[in-house]
Design a binder for these strands. Structure first.
Length: 295
DNA sequence: ACCCAGGGTCGTC
DNA sequence: GACGACCCTGGG
């Protein structure tokens, strides 16, 4: 282990609504790896974390930056442990039988509270892309620019800080296999570094639509990516990111047009707002995961 | 070998 | 406000 890292450990008993597969494979995050059914290892902002679940007990073993003071606080925040998912699921289940079924499928989902900078870059990469490739690109960025951490005999790389990524040029991004997203990643990195748009300021806002307006100023951030950032990094549970899968599931279940590409986004958003209201983001994750995983 | 789609966005008309 | 282009990779 490196000198400026330290080992941390936390065990939580009687945990509710917490299934590893549901949390890590519902499409919200890209840096968690399955070791076996009961074990995942991932890289978060402050270090490498191994999560193991046995019955209703979850343990977290971390190799974390020395500067962190409260491992438990970091874990509780990242895994959204202070939100009552039982009551959310209960409310959503009452809406209709489709919600009930999607929730019973993804009953252990939690919306992670991920780092804003990392989420911004990750979801710019996600545009017109598939999940395995997105993961590969992020891994290569981390390996080239991020800090190396050794944990249980394996090498991991933290996602690079703004400072660590500021010298990456368009060609550097291109060389990592980002394709046409190279310019967007470069521009956005520069905008963040120069504080042309301040991430700290975005985080300090409480109005969701003002946050969205600021996010939309970054190159490569359109409505869908902005909503994903709002949901996965800024804990705005009222947003409803619409992608091909969500369009598909919403059309199949509720709108029922012959050609799903003819369904307007506004139609979907209106329906979601009416049905799910302030819990739209949660509903979106259950539906997305259900539709993608369930054949 | 060929075609298609993937957690969309951008530039142009 | 609609429409095509876009890097690359895996799967049919």
């Amino acid at each position: 282990m490196e000198k400026n890292m330290k080992n941390c450990y936390l065990k939580i008993d009687n945990i509710d609504s917490f299934e590893l597969k549901d949390i890590f494979e519902c499409g919200q995050c890209f840096r968690w790896k399955k070791i076996d059914e009961n074990t995942y290892v991932g890289v978060i902002k402050q270090g490498v974390v191994k999560v193991e679940k046995e019955l209703n007990t979850v343990s977290f073993s971390g190799c974390m930056l020395d500067e962190i003071e409260d491992f438990e606080a970091i874990i509780r925040d990242y895994f959204d442990l202070d939100t009552d998912y039982s009551s959310i699921k209960e409310k959503l289940s009452k809406i209709d039988s489709y919600m009930k079924e999607s929730i019973s499928f993804g009953t252990g989902i939690r919306i992670l509270h991920q780092d804003l900078w990392e989420t911004l870059i990750s979801f710019i990469i996600s545009a017109n892309n598939n999940i395995p490739r997105i993961k590969g690109i992020i891994d290569r960025i981390a390996k080239k620019y991020g800090k190396k951490v050794e944990f249980e005999g394996e090498e991991y790389f933290l996602f690079p800080t703004v400072e660590e990524l500021k010298d990456a040029k368009v060609e550097d991004f291109k060389a990592l296999g980002t394709g046409f997203r190279d310019k967007r990643l470069y521009k956005t990195s520069q905008m963040v570094y120069s504080q042309e748009i301040s991430l700290t300021e975005i985080e300090s806002l409480d109005d969701t639509s003002k946050m969205r307006d600021m996010l939309l100023k970054f190159d490569g951030v359109g409505p869908k990516v902005a909503d994903c950032i709002l949901l996965f990094a800024l804990k705005r549970f009222d947003v409803f990111p619409v992608d091909v899968w969500v369009r598909r599931v919403m059309n199949d279940l509720y709108i029922k047009k012959d050609d799903e590409s003819k369904v307007s986004k506004n139609e979907i958003l209106k329906l979601a707002a009416d049905k799910f209201g302030s819990l739209s983001g949660m509903a979106q994750q259950y539906l997305f995961y259900w539709r993608r995983e369930e054949k």
